[in-house]
Computed example of a mutant assay.
Amino acid sequence: MKPVKRCPMLLIVVLLLAPHVAAQSIKSVEVSVYASGYAKVTEVLTPPNYSVAVEVPLLSENVTGLSVLDENGKPLLFEKNGSVLTVYILNSTTRITITYFTDSLTSKEGKVWNLTYSFPYPVTIKLPPGAVVVDLSDVPLTITSNSITMPPGNQSVSYILPPPTTSTTSSPSPTQTPTTTTTSSTSSTSPSTTSSIPSPSVTPSTTTTPSEPSTPASSGRRNLLPIIGLLAAMGIPAVAYWARNRKHPGGLPISKDELKEKLEAMGLTDEEINALLYVYDQGGRAKQADVRKALGIPKTTAWRMFKRLEEKGLVRVYKRGKENWVELVF
């Protein structure tokens, strides 16, 4: 009896039906920061042809209000795993818009707010109205009156918000009540009843999900001043010169060469020196995970190394959210 030859058709069908997770083509990433430090992130991408799923990186693991829509505003199925989002699509899908909110991108030290993130694509940042930028980790790709586009990688933007001003627009209601209470003398109690009626401009969704603050054109021109206005006037070459010759982000007191000489004089290993120089290049602080990924150090080895460096008084290790951060000490 001749052996039966198995037809490879079954294998071909299985391969064709298996879900294909493809790389995405991100068109834009925008971060709108609120005065409270909360941020709304919008990622727009174009899925590749003949794919049923795409993997999209997120700016943070801790997100809320996650929404994934196609070009017609219809929701798409998705699955979140850490900071990676898998979106399931149809062949007809030509555009994916992902929006979410997070409070893990910003931190505050005194009066200075710091927006820090690591992302493999350029990110456009819109700060709150009236914000004044005091430091940038890198030369921006573009600068407008109300936004900064930073290049890929580990980036940080430091800014200061203007002091809160007392508005007198909320007090005119007592002066307006005589015009609305001319019917009878009992209308003096009407403010207590009318105040319980919600205004038509307020929707229930705004109480649970932050909405993007309105930014009139007049206030937008004041954003990111004085640095943005000065750099925009001087041009990109001046920006590059400023980035090369200014003190490193965070106001580090010594240069990189001086730090390297100091570390070599202390008899540190090459691995320890390279780790500290990497943290220096990130503005004096970086995620411990980013350091070990950049240098190819195992997790346990990196933990022990930074423990030794902390005991020597060279770094400070602290926790922000779920991430361990390393900060140089001078």
Rank of each mutant, 00 (worst) to 15 (best):
residue 1 M to W: 03
residue 5 K to A: 15
residue 7 C to V: 07
residue 9 M to A: 10
residue 13 V to H: 11
residue 13 V to Y: 13
residue 13 V to W: 14
residue 14 V to E: 14
residue 21 V to L: 15
residue 23 A to Q: 14
residue 27 K to N: 14
residue 28 S to I: 03
residue 30 E to L: 07
residue 30 E to G: 03
residue 31 V to G: 13
residue 33 V to R: 06
residue 35 A to M: 03
residue 35 A to G: 09
residue 35 A to P: 05
residue 36 S to V: 00
residue 40 K to H: 14
residue 40 K to N: 11
residue 43 E to W: 03
residue 48 P to A: 11
residue 48 P to F: 13
residue 52 V to K: 12
residue 53 A to M: 11
residue 54 V to S: 09
residue 56 V to L: 14
residue 62 N to M: 11
residue 63 V to N: 09
residue 65 G to V: 02
residue 71 E to S: 09
residue 72 N to S: 12
residue 76 L to F: 06
residue 77 L to Y: 13
residue 79 E to T: 08
residue 80 K to F: 08
residue 81 N to K: 15
residue 81 N to S: 14
residue 85 L to R: 05
residue 85 L to P: 05
residue 85 L to V: 04
residue 86 T to L: 08
residue 88 Y to Q: 07
residue 89 I to D: 02
residue 92 S to K: 04
residue 93 T to V: 15
residue 95 R to M: 06
residue 96 I to T: 04
residue 96 I to K: 01
residue 101 F to M: 11
residue 104 S to I: 01
residue 108 K to Y: 04
residue 110 G to T: 05
residue 110 G to I: 03
residue 110 G to S: 10
residue 112 V to E: 10
residue 113 W to K: 00
residue 114 N to G: 07
residue 115 L to E: 01
residue 118 S to H: 10
residue 119 F to I: 09
residue 121 Y to A: 01
residue 124 T to F: 01
residue 126 K to D: 03
residue 131 A to T: 00
residue 135 D to H: 00
residue 136 L to E: 00
residue 137 S to M: 01
residue 140 P to I: 02
residue 145 S to Y: 03
residue 147 S to A: 14
residue 148 I to C: 07
residue 149 T to C: 06
residue 157 V to Y: 02
residue 158 S to M: 12
residue 162 P to K: 04
residue 164 P to D: 13
residue 166 T to A: 08
residue 170 S to D: 08
residue 173 S to F: 12
residue 175 T to K: 06
residue 181 T to G: 08
residue 182 T to P: 00
residue 183 T to D: 09
residue 188 S to F: 07
residue 189 T to R: 01
residue 189 T to S: 04
residue 190 S to E: 03
residue 191 P to C: 07
residue 193 T to D: 03
residue 195 S to Y: 07
residue 200 P to H: 01
residue 201 S to C: 02
residue 206 T to M: 11
residue 206 T to F: 09
residue 207 T to H: 13
residue 208 T to I: 15
residue 211 S to E: 11
residue 213 P to E: 08
residue 218 S to E: 05
residue 220 G to W: 02
residue 221 R to I: 05
residue 222 R to Y: 04
residue 226 P to G: 00
residue 229 G to F: 00
residue 232 A to T: 10
residue 233 A to F: 00
residue 234 M to G: 00
residue 237 P to Y: 10
residue 237 P to S: 09
residue 243 A to C: 06
residue 245 N to I: 02
residue 246 R to I: 00
residue 246 R to Y: 00
residue 247 K to P: 02
residue 255 S to C: 03
residue 258 E to K: 13
residue 259 L to W: 14
residue 260 K to A: 13
residue 260 K to C: 08
residue 261 E to M: 10
residue 262 K to C: 02
residue 263 L to G: 07
residue 266 M to F: 01
residue 268 L to F: 03
residue 270 D to C: 01
residue 273 I to P: 05
residue 274 N to V: 01
residue 274 N to K: 12
residue 276 L to V: 10
residue 279 V to T: 12
residue 283 G to F: 02
residue 283 G to P: 04
residue 287 K to S: 12
residue 294 A to V: 04
residue 297 I to R: 10
residue 300 T to P: 06
residue 300 T to Q: 13
residue 301 T to G: 06
residue 301 T to F: 05
residue 305 M to T: 06
residue 309 L to A: 09
residue 313 G to N: 11
residue 315 V to W: 06
residue 318 Y to C: 09
residue 318 Y to M: 09
residue 322 K to F: 15
residue 323 E to Y: 12
residue 324 N to A: 15
residue 326 V to Q: 04
residue 329 V to F: 13
residue 330 F to C: 08
